[in-house]
Each structure stands twice: as structure tokens, then as C-alpha cells.
Design a protein around this nucleic acid. Sequence first.
DNA 1: TTGCTCCTCACGTCACGTGAGGTGGC
DNA 2: TTGCTCCTCACGTCACGTGAGGTGGC
Lengths: 125, 125
Amino acid sequence: MHQIGEVAERVDLSLRTVRYYEEMGLIAPEQRTDGGFRLFTEETIDRLKLIKQMKPLGFNLAEMRELIDAREALRTLETDDPGRRRAADVLAQYAESAGVRCQELNEQLATAVKLVRQLSRESRG
Amino acid sequence: MHQIGEVAERVDLSLRTVRYYEEMGLIAPEQRTDGGFRLFTEETIDRLKLIKQMKPLGFNLAEMRELIDAREALRTLETDDPGRRRAADVLAQYAESAGVRCQELNEQLATAVKLVRQLSRESRG
DNA sequence: TTGCTCCTCACGTCACGTGAGGTGGC
DNA sequence: TTGCTCCTCACGTCACGTGAGGTGGC
């Protein structure tokens, strides 16, 4: 069980961001100390890493939550649970959408690289 | 001379965004009609394209303005103007900083691509 | 007991989105 | 004259940043 400071440092996010993600329902502390300190499990770290890695793709936090929930459902629900099917569909949709965004971002990056080279040339006269 | 709607459509930005960039000093209409309609030159289009292409690199609008101003100064000031030297330095700084951000974004994108493939696999069981 | 870590408000910020109500131009 | 385009407020939103004032835990 990890306090918020340790969690934030390990995933390189601010305390505020971790609390905000909790407020938005993306993560939740497993429990609290008597004094009210949040205690997170290793799974929270995994979630936060996922969120951080997906961030450049431009999903909002509600979408992130849906994605994470679907993944979680797929991992925890029994094979015969009908919810698994829906979770798999949702996850597949997000994977596809994310793939498209990867391509778009890749193109934008290529454009930016060219532009930056141009600016560099201009600065040298 | 182009009205805001034409400008916005050509660079694929909202009217609000174009007006906001004007408010922040990134662009300015060459003149207004008697009725108050903004009239922009082709140069505004160039600036907006530059801003849009740099956006994925995460500079804020104040930085964008400084970059654009430096580029403009380099283009318009005479060779013997001492301001040219400073403008060239500023532009070089931004070009370098932008280059670093391109690399970082490239790495983040590679990580995201792997993650998306993983999610896609998970969704197919 | 002393720091360092954490807590909850709650207001601020950045880059816009979104009407509300009104006027301009082919 | 009729649409379509534009105008200026001005409040709303998203994802946090940043104190203010107070308490917890080794």
C-alpha cells in the first residue's frame, strides 16, 4: 500500500492530478488511514501509467475512464459473463480510435519536424 | 483581403479560436469594414498555419507569439538592424526547444502505439 | 517535539466552446 | 427584403495549478 506522494513520484504526476483523477473516477484508494491518508495499491500505478501513456492521443478523462473500466471488466469478469462481451467491444472501439489518432499524431509530428528544420534554417540566415 | 469565415475555413480553426488568437496578439486584421468586419491578409493565413502545426509541441500562446514575432522581425528588419540579431537568437532558441519536443513526442508516440496494440490484443481475448 | 507528508476547500488559469442579442453586406 | 455572415459580451468547461489553513505519522 502506497501513499499518494510515492504514487505521484513513481508515475511522475502531481499530487493534484492524482487527486483529480480520483475525483473523476479513474482511480480509487483501496483504503484510508485513520487520519484520512489515501492508500493505493499497485493497480493504481498501472492505471496511472496507462492514462499517462494514452494522454498524447487526446482522449478526455471520461473516455479514459470508460476505456480503463472496460479493460478491468475484461480482466476480472468470468468467461461466461455477458458483460465481458460488451467490455471487449468497448475496448476494441477505443483501440481502433486510438490507432487512428496515433496515425494522425504521427503525420502532425512529421509536419512539425519539417517546420522546425525550416525555422532553424531561418534563424541561421 | 479575407473575412474571418474564409480564413477560419482555410486553416480549419473555429471563428472563436481566430478571434482569441487576435486577442492574445498572435494575429491582427489589416483593417475593418465600416460595419466592423475583420479583414485579414494572406500573411495571417501563414501565421495561423504555423501556429496550428506547432500546437502538438505544446508551446503556450505567449511563446507562440514570441516565436512568430521573432520570425517576422527576421524577415522584415534590415540586415544592419541590431534587432535582427536578437530575433535570430530567439528563433534559434525556439527551434532548438521545438526539436527536443519533437523527439519527446516521438518517443511518447512509440509508447502509445505499443500500448494500443496491446489493448487491441486484449480486446480480442 | 520537530519536520515532512498529507488533508480539504476554493479560487485561478489556459484555451477555447457556446449561446444571447444585435448588426452588416451581397 | 431575405439569408447568411459577422459583431461583442459574457458565462461555461476541461484539466489541472496554487495557495490557505489545518492535521497525521515516523
